[in-house]
Computed example of a mutant assay.
Amino acid sequence: MHTMDQENVSATLTVAVPADRVFAVLADPATHAAIDGTGWVQEPVDRAPLTEAGQIFRMDMYHADHPDGDYQVANKVQVLDPPHAIGWLTGTEKEDGSLEFGGWTWRYDLAPSGPSGTHITLTYDWSAVPQYIREYLQFPPFGTGHLANSLHHLGELVSGR
């Protein structure tokens, strides 16, 4: 299922895996490249598991349309409620070491489905993106199939396929 309104897009998938196992995969930055449906996420710079809101984890990225091709993002954990929800803001680290966030977030919500299954909802939200960024970036910056692709990859990972 795919829903889209003005300021966010989401997709859902049900897997026959308990939520704590799904959450553990999402909380491990080393799995994010395998989950990503765009192929932009390359390698985690920070490999420590995500354990608290406010934690920063950086990722090496590649995008053919990016001015540098290879670039790095700094993500800030916004919600971390195991095994129910995990989400982060994506931004960049400036030359002085300060972080700047664009206002878009990624969030996974996990709900029980049957005795050992999990209903996963992935939401990309850009409602907090300021106008000046919207003038040069189109939202969402990926095709409609991206969230479903990511959930499919996540499902394969957690199912051990």
Rank of each mutant, 00 (worst) to 15 (best):
Ser150Lys: 02
Leu147Gln: 10
Val73Tyr: 02
Asp125Ala: 05
Asn149Gln: 14
His119Gly: 06
Ile86Val: 15
Ala64Glu: 12
Pro83Arg: 05
Asp20Lys: 04
Asn8Pro: 05
Gly37Lys: 07
Val41Thr: 15
Thr51Gln: 10
Tyr108Trp: 12
Ala53Lys: 04
Thr3Ser: 14
Ala85Gly: 08
Pro44Lys: 03
Trp88Ile: 09
His119Cys: 04
Val25Cys: 02
Pro67Asn: 08
Gln78Phe: 11
Leu157Thr: 07
Thr31Ala: 09
Val17Thr: 12
His153Gln: 13
Met59Tyr: 03
Ala111Glu: 13
Leu137Ala: 11
Val73Gln: 08
Tyr124Trp: 15
Gly97Phe: 04
Ala33Pro: 10
Asp5Ile: 04
Leu122Met: 13
Asp68Val: 06
Pro18Val: 03
Ser10Leu: 03
Leu26Val: 02
Thr31Cys: 02
Glu135Leu: 12
Gly54Ser: 06
Ala128Asp: 15
Thr31Glu: 01
Gln78Ile: 14
Val17Met: 03
Phe23His: 00
Thr38Val: 14
Ala33Val: 08
Gln42Met: 06
Pro67Gln: 08
Gln78Ser: 13
Val15His: 03
Asp60Ile: 02
Arg21Ala: 03
Val158Ile: 05
Glu52Val: 05
Ile133Leu: 13
Gln131Gly: 08
Glu43Asp: 09
Pro29Thr: 07
Asp68Met: 11
Ala33Arg: 05
Leu157Asn: 01
Arg107Ser: 07
Gly54Phe: 00
Gly91Val: 08
Pro115Ser: 07
Gly114Leu: 00
Ala148Ser: 15
Ala64Lys: 12
Thr144Phe: 09
Gln131Tyr: 06
Thr123Val: 10
Gly69Gln: 08
Val15Tyr: 00
Val45Ala: 08
Trp88Gln: 04
Ser98Thr: 13
Ala19Glu: 07
His32Arg: 00
Pro49Asp: 11
